[in-house]
């Protein structure tokens, strides 16, 4: 079924009701207090041999980005501190993950 016919069948108007937001806008709704120490480190050598790249898909904060040379680029600043990345990682020890410095990191308001 095409998206158009799906919409027609279910009486959904074109995306006029609510517009999709960009990922940046989405992340900007959360407050992050950023510390200079990275609480995630990634061992680039392990990533080069990794084919599944679970972290790239699973990280809800979209912190992991594959690079053209087969490595993984990551940032730690907008991390929800959920732990998904090290849990899904197939390469033992590729992702080292600790909690950020006390008082820093994600600060939820209305969750």
């Amino acid at each position: 079924m095409s998206l158009e016919s799906l919409r027609a069948a279910n009486n959904i108007e074109r995306d006029a009701t609510w517009a999709e937001m960009s990922f940046q806008e989405r992340i900007d709704t959360a407050e992050f207090r950023i510390h200079e120490r990275a609480h995630i480190t990634v061992n680039g050598d392990s990533c080069r041999g990794c084919t599944t790249r679970e972290c790239v898909v699973a990280c809800p904060a979209n912190l992991f980005v594959p690079t053209s040379d087969g490595g993984i680029l990551f940032n730690y600043e907008n991390c929800f501190e959920c732990g998904t990345c090290y849990m899904v990682c197939n390469e033992a020890g590729a992702i080292t993950w600790t909690y950020p410095e006390g008082g820093y990191g994600i600060v939820f308001h209305r969750t």
Partner: peptide
């Protein structure tokens, strides 16, 4: 999920004010 015909009318016009994640 938000686009599902049973869900969309419930949240129509709502603005995302906070996104969050947890295990």
């Amino acid at each position: 999920l938000k686009r599902h015909p049973a869900i969309a009318p419930l949240i129509e016009g709502a603005e995302v004010i906070e996104y969050s994640a947890h295990l």
